[in-house]
Design a binder for these strands. Structure first.
Lengths: 78, 78, 78, 78
DNA sequence: TCAGATAAAATCGCGC
DNA sequence: GCGCGATTTTATCTGA
């Protein structure tokens, strides 16, 4: 122990950093969309709520599917 | 008063949702990189710390470190 | 700058640590409840899902109230 | 098969929810302490770091710090 | 600039 | 012991 393959480590770190940069860039794009919408008279706060509610909806649907499956498993095990 | 252009609103919402989906996808890619690194013997926890350290603006980091140092000394922990 | 009231700082830190200890203790109590339920034949996984869904429900109700208020404000401003 | 004792289940769920409510309440208390400290001129961010440092098991902290150091040296960042 | 809300990151704990 | 998911904590962002 004590040896580290610096070349590989560096490559991994840089891949992560590149991906994080892309992610940040998309985050900026999202902000731009809200700004553009706002400039056209839409309320960004309301828009964010809508997006959030729609996200929760799909999340909840998934959860419900999961719990259904769990119930079936539980019954199947009994 | 009270009129909302639903067509434009819908388009904006969908653009945001598409971008958020891409963002999530990149997040998954990042997880994959860490997993791959781990499978080669690297410690993902430490790698994350490195990425985090590099991400922080060094100026602010030093500033905060100084305050922390001061507090620790005050508490007799340094 | 450079002076820190160590007495007050220490007191605050200790208050936080005491509260965190209580929080951890309650977390343990929760685990105990699940364990007890499991010993009586209930499925902890299913129970957690139920608790989670009920929590989401109240959260969603709040969010819907928020968005309603936002809409009203938006209309009131128009 | 398929029978569930709803009375007991409901009781367990409610015990969990009550405990979770208490936990949330203590979380709020902690936030209050930080707010009060801030109002007296302390830096909450730094205070959180101190609490975090004290919480960490020092043995494990040293272990991880060593690996981090090794990686940083390998990358030429140390 | 600050508080409050939102989202991201790190950590923790469970089940497999 | 490992991955996965939930929780918690941190950081960012928005609006006052």
């Amino acid at each position: 122990m004590g040896y580290v393959d610096g070349g590989h480590l560096k490559a991994f770190i840089e891949r992560v950093e590149k991906l994080e940069e892309e992610k940040r860039s998309i985050g900026d794009d999202i902000k731009d969309v809200y700004a553009e919408a706002k400039s056209m008279g839409f309320d960004p706060g309301v828009m964010r709520k809508i997006v959030s509610l729609r996200r929760q909806d799909s999340g909840r649907r998934e959860e419900e599917a999961n719990i259904l499956e769990l119930y079936l498993q539980t019954l199947g095990m009994a």
